[in-house]
Structure formats: C-alpha cells, structure tokens
Design a protein around this nucleic acid. Sequence first.
DNA 1: AAACCAAGTTTCAAATAATGGAACTTAACT
DNA 2: AGTTAAGTTCCATTATTTGAAACTTGGTTT
Lengths: 272, 272
Amino acid sequence: MGLDKGKSDGTVGKALEILDLVASFERPVRFSDVLEIAEFPKATVYRFIQTLTSQGMLSYDPDRQTYALGIRLVRLAHSAWQQSSLAPVAHPHIEKLARDVGETVHLAQMDHAQVLYVDKIDPGKPIEMFSQAGKVGPAYCTGVGKAMMAYLDAPHLAEVIGQQSFHVFTEFTLADEAALRAELIDIRSNGYGFDREEHEPDIICVALPILTAQGRVLGALSVTSSTQRTNLAALEALVPRIQLAATAIANEAESWRFPDQSKFQSVKTAKG
Amino acid sequence: MGLDKGKSDGTVGKALEILDLVASFERPVRFSDVLEIAEFPKATVYRFIQTLTSQGMLSYDPDRQTYALGIRLVRLAHSAWQQSSLAPVAHPHIEKLARDVGETVHLAQMDHAQVLYVDKIDPGKPIEMFSQAGKVGPAYCTGVGKAMMAYLDAPHLAEVIGQQSFHVFTEFTLADEAALRAELIDIRSNGYGFDREEHEPDIICVALPILTAQGRVLGALSVTSSTQRTNLAALEALVPRIQLAATAIANEAESWRFPDQSKFQSVKTAKG
DNA sequence: AAACCAAGTTTCAAATAATGGAACTTAACT
DNA sequence: AGTTAAGTTCCATTATTTGAAACTTGGTTT
C-alpha cells in the first residue's frame, strides 16, 4: 500500500540514501562504517558504494581506504546555485543590505522540513564560501524558518510541523506545536518575525519572508546579531530596509528569464 | 561485451546521466528539453525525472513548469567540501597567499579529465561563493590543469590526455598531444608551469601542483593575472612563495585527521 | 609458522524493478 | 468543434538488482 515516509524511489532512491549516510558522518568513512548504519545487506551496500564512486559522487582515498562525498557534487551544486532563480538574483541585494546595516545577513530556503542557508554575508569576515552556504538548520527555532512557515498553506505547514523535532536549545525555544502555531499567526499579522535567542543563547535576529506576487514562499531573509551588540527593538527598526530588499528580490526572481529562454512563454509574456 | 566508455553503472548511472543533462542547460528546463537530448525513451526519462524530483536532486517550478537542479545538491556539496581534506585545509593558506601577492589565487582538483576549481580568492572582489567554486575548465590549456597532469602516472595521464578536446582558444593554445606532452615534461623538470594566454587572451598564470610525500597529485595552486598588469617573469618570481603554500597545504592535508577519527590508524600512527 | 580474525570482495539463482511501445489525458491554439 | 503538441499512465516483457554464502586478503594472536 502506502509509502511509509515518501522514502525509496526504487534503486535510485536507495543509492541516494547511501549518499546521505556518507554525508551524515562529517568525515571520510570506511566501508564498514557505512555498512553498520545502512539497512541493506553487505553486498548491496558494497555495490552501491562502488557505483557511486565510479560515478564521482563519492571519492575514494586509497591511502586511508576511506570514502568521502565526491567532487562531482561540487560541480553539480555550482550549477544548482546558478540555475536557482533565487540565490544569484538575491546576492547583490544581500551584499548591499549587509553593508547598510553592518550585520550578518542570511538567505534561506526550505529543504523538506529544514532550513537551508543558500547564502550568507558577514560584513566582518569577507569570505566564507561552501563552509556557510549549504548549511542546514531547524525551522521551528530560527527566524528564517518561522518566517517561511508563517506563509505556507495549511497542508504543507502541517507536514512541515509534523517533522519538527522541538528540541529545546535554550530557555526561549518554542517547545511545542501550539507555541509555534501561535507565533506563526503573530508573524503573519506583522509580516516579520524574530529569533529571540531560541536557537543559540545571545543570538537574535529579525527575519522576513520572500514571497511571489501570489504569496508563494520563495525563501527568507534575516539580519542576525547578538544581545551584546543590539536588541530586538533596534532590529525591528531595520524591517523597512529588509522589506525593500525582500520585495526587490522577489520581483527580480519572478520576472527573471534565463539568457536565451525567449522560446518559452514568449507569446504569452509578449502579449502583456 | 565491454563497457563502451566506462559509462553506465546500471540504473543509478543512468539517473545521474539525466541529472547531468539538466545541469548542461544553464537554465531551468522543460521535460521536453531533456527528452530531446536524452538517449532514453519518453517514459524512461519521465520516470527518472520524477524520481530525481521526489528525491530533491531536481526541483520543479510549478508556475513555469520547469525543472532545475535541486537544493539537496547544495546541502550535499557543503558536506563534500567539508569532508574533502584539501579545500578546507587550504583555504587559509590561499587567503594569505592572495593577500601577499595581490593577485587572484585558484585551487583546483582533477575531476575526470577536467579541472575543477574548488576555491578562488580574488583580493579585489571579496565575495564570490558558489558562483566560482564548482566551475570546471579544460585541463590541457590551463596552468593548474597542466601542473596536475605533469605529475600523473603514465596510464592515468594517457587516459586524461585521451579525453582532451584540444580546442584552439587562442593563438597560444597547445593544439595537440605532442605539444602538450613536451610541455608536461618541461613542467615536471621545473616543478611549475605557466598558462601563456593559452585559454583566454591576455590572461596568464603560474601554477604549482600540490603533491603528497609519495608524489600523488592532490590538486594545484595558481596565481593568475593579465599581460596588462604583469608578465611571466614577474609571476615566476612568485614561485617560491606559492611553493611554500603548496607544501604547507600538502603536509596539513596528509596529516589531518578528522576530529574524532582517532579510532582509525591509531596504532599505526602512534608507533612513529 | 600455523591458526585465527576482521575487513573487504565475488558469486549466482531467485526476486524484483526497469523498460518502452503505445494508448491516453490535458491544455493551448486554430 | 478540431487539431496539435506536451505531458502522463499502462502493463507484459526483459533485464537488473538482490543478498546469503562462500571466498580472498591482510593483519594479529597463540
């Protein structure tokens, strides 16, 4: 009958599951490490690892006899980042915003029920790269996560909430669905939300959703600081400026056509 | 009988082939775009795209009815970058080198027969991110490509050379295998090589390989500039400084053990 | 030195999943 | 209403994946 958790899409799904397992160790792994936590028999795991390695999705270090995620992923991610209508379009706006307000700005999207940071600019430390973009975080206790959830439609929201862990990180963490839902209604009525040290002590932020004209959630922007440097009221004062950036990004992302995409939707868009 | 080109590893290989096809368009694509260039029948391409989308390797834009590479790739690439012993270890060295010499520094690795840039620092424009890391380039006409090829073992080198296109970009491009092999011998005897406007007019660089103690190629470093700003002799004068960085990176990358990796090779390394 | 052990690799018949031609459903345009 | 192109589903056939078990390899113990 049903799919248990939308899990395995045949062989490809299983192979990608192995890829995730390798990623879940934050270091290169041995075959036996993967085998231990995989739910497939030895020969199967072995064959998948072979295939993934031969495909460049994993790399093998012959000296240490370990596997790590392969560089083909870096190449693909580069394309993914470029193809995404959000991140490349948003980048200059975020850069400007970070300079204007002198604080760290994050750009995030939903990835399943988690928050995925696709860009980050810290006016202090200029260069961060992959070490920052690609990071994931919890949705229920981050500014960007709550800002995005506040604008999801009911069924989608229910699904996302169902997958939250509600781990209590600090004394301010919203620890259950009821508290979260109340907060989301609040955010929706304001148009912006805060992270009140809910994820890390002393770290606060203000976040706004990036929405299409139809109200579909594209992502979220946040300005982050610490209680030592500022306070929520000061962050709230930045809302108009962030809103301006969010709106600009949404407009550009929506209207953006890729270089030679004129053959698509040409008649329809030329009409208006 | 044989595998034609080391190509398809069963179903997983085919699915990844579809992923590459989507990446090869540098914009979101329709189902029919992929179908057109794919060598599988309609229903097969359709099912693969469905699977990859449900797995988050592709994303679907319902408004435009287009597919793009998914954000799961960005998450995986983040892990790949972190797990790689080279890029994170090299980053601070490259940063310092770029500041020292005031020119753009690239860090590259071999990806099949191509050069993959895994890091880039331009002292002028601080922030680039994914837009730079993940880029690929030809091996036979770039400084880093030739520096790495010069230190490959014979069989591996033959394989890589066999896959070069030898497209003539400029009047200085090495246009055939003989010219390339002569150049590689030269590079190997010097320990470093140049790009003499072979790929782009006016762009020159000096490149050094990053080698393990056993002489295995880990990657390459290059310092790039233009004929308007400098010349080959001036770049050559930077070699000792670049060499220092390359050696330091190689040492760190080789000796680096990931945080809690003590359980591996502990006895063996403790012995020495 | 022989026996042992753990990690990694290969085998092969049975079970399962992928295949793809063709039919079907939409949606857009005439 | 009629036509065409794009996208989706069906299902018997075919090819691939599966996984227990046997085997190999390299290192350690008695």
